[in-house]
Design a protein around this nucleic acid. Structure first.
Lengths: 256, 256
DNA sequence: AAAAGCATTCGAAAGTATTCAAAAGCGAGA
DNA sequence: TCTCGCTTTTGAATACTTTCGAATGCTTTT
């Protein structure tokens, strides 16, 4: 196989990488009928464009060391926004607080951003949130019980709701799938929505974490109306008009 | 399987670690068709990147989760035995079973070894066990609720015990800290022991997972006497005399 | 205490990377 | 067509990495 120019060689290399996940210099030399020096130069160019990872004798398509566990797509997208939102939310937590953290990627970002100053009690149904917080000896974590949903790694159902009845917390951090000015807060799972309602009933202050893509959307399960919530933390993709409407309802809007 | 270069070898090692939680040098030598020196060098490199923990003869996963030292220290040692024990225990699970899995490193090894054939219901208080099982859509996981202990990443307390009252399961898989012929089964935490008692009350068959170092030891919290249990799975470090004594009590002893 | 198993170090051999100056290719203009 | 100026490719020399077995020391088991 003889390749006329660089572009074609690069395409060949990337195609082979996509197919096999790995290429080595020697084989490419033979297949493309060029010298090793040339292949190495090609690989270096592609590496500089971060289209592959170089290693001795060849190259791989993805970094062998970022052993990415199959993080679902939702978790990847808008991570930076969620992270900033989580950071802002974490700043609202005071020493000796008792708070509830619901489930979802936004509140996981919150959990990762909590660096407790004093003692803290956290109630959550989300396994990943609980595990994140267990690192801190200052935090007492109450895990809600019940049937686990694999999509959110969190519990729902009567057992969780029953446990909630025994507690009274100062703040609830709630991640949602949709915020609609008329319809209120929604999530895509009806059981999750029901649990969230119980959570709302046991706290004094409700703080919603939602990146700006959530506004105007309606999920399947309605959680509550806008009039029930106290604060929304979102990113600057939110429209001024929406901010105005929320603030008119008496909600504090924090934009990160 | 012959791997040509480092990157692929490292990826293989990390993948295997992610799946099994433990790798040993000898097996990797065979699987990757390289010498022990090379594998050790690889493991050292990966350890320097803190992608794993080195241990005699192998390595264990360094999960950013479950990063509480107590478990990780324990996890380092005798992993091979625990893994084999977990494998044998997993073989006892039948389709459509409903089982309880307690907490500890041995039963975590069990969880990693479960590859369900049909539907399966699992009740557990251990977050790491629950997370491990959530991968399988065939498994319905019931997470117990309550206060979390960071050393074991598992719940104890009245909420967990209350949930247990509603279920009746066929088997309980129990990891313990000590097995004494007179004193019975013990664990180092009194709350854990109490929860284990409640678990025992809700199942028909009790299977204890314990590597051979546990025999003759007494932990702080007594769980039950030997007469209450049905089967023990352990490794071949157990003395013939102990096996005889256990079998005389009517316990089936499985040695892996 | 001995034996077995595992880890580390070292130098040799093979394989791979880099550099550099020479050669080859290529388009533009005479 | 030929040459000029440019980029791309190349082989050769050199430098670096990787792998391995053997020797030696360490840990665990018997």
């Amino acid at each position: 196989m003889s390749m006329i120019n660089i572009a074609e060689r690069h395409k060949f290399i990337l195609d082979k990488l996509a197919e096999k996940g790995y290429v080595n210099v020697i084989d490419l030399c033979r297949e493309l009928d060029v010298s090793g020096v040339t292949i190495r130069k090609d690989l270096k160019l592609l590496e500089d464009k971060s289209l592959l990872f170089r290693s001795h004798g060849g190259a791989t398509i993805n970094n062998p060391y970022t052993n990415d566990k199959p993080v679902n797509e939702k978790e990847k997208i808008r991570w930076q926004e969620k992270y900033n939102i989580g950071q802002a939310a974490a700043a609202l937590i005071a020493p000796n607080d008792a708070v509830i953290i619901a489930s979802g990627t936004s509140v996981l970002a919150l959990a990762k951003n909590i660096h407790p100053k004093g003692h803290l009690t956290v109630i959550t149904g989300a396994l990943n949130v609980a595990l994140e917080l267990l690192r801190w000896p200052e935090i007492e974590v109450i895990q809600l019980g019940g049937q686990l949903r694999s999509s959110s790694s969190s519990v729902t159902g009567p057992y969780a709701e029953k446990i909630l009845e025994d507690f009274s917390c100062s703040k609830l951090f709630l991640g949602v799938d949709g915020i609609d000015l008329e319809f209120g807060l929604t999530t895509s799972n009806i059981n999750e929505a029901h649990l969230n309602q119980k959570m709302i009933a046991t706290v004094q202050k409700i703080i919603v974490l939602a990146d700006s893509s959530k506004f105007g959307k309606r999920g399947f399960g309605r959680i509550c109306g806008l009039e029930d919530i106290d604060e929304i933390i979102t990113d600057n993709g939110i429209s001024a008009h929406t901010v105005k409407a929320l603030e008119d309802t008496g909600i504090k809007v924090t934009i990160v």
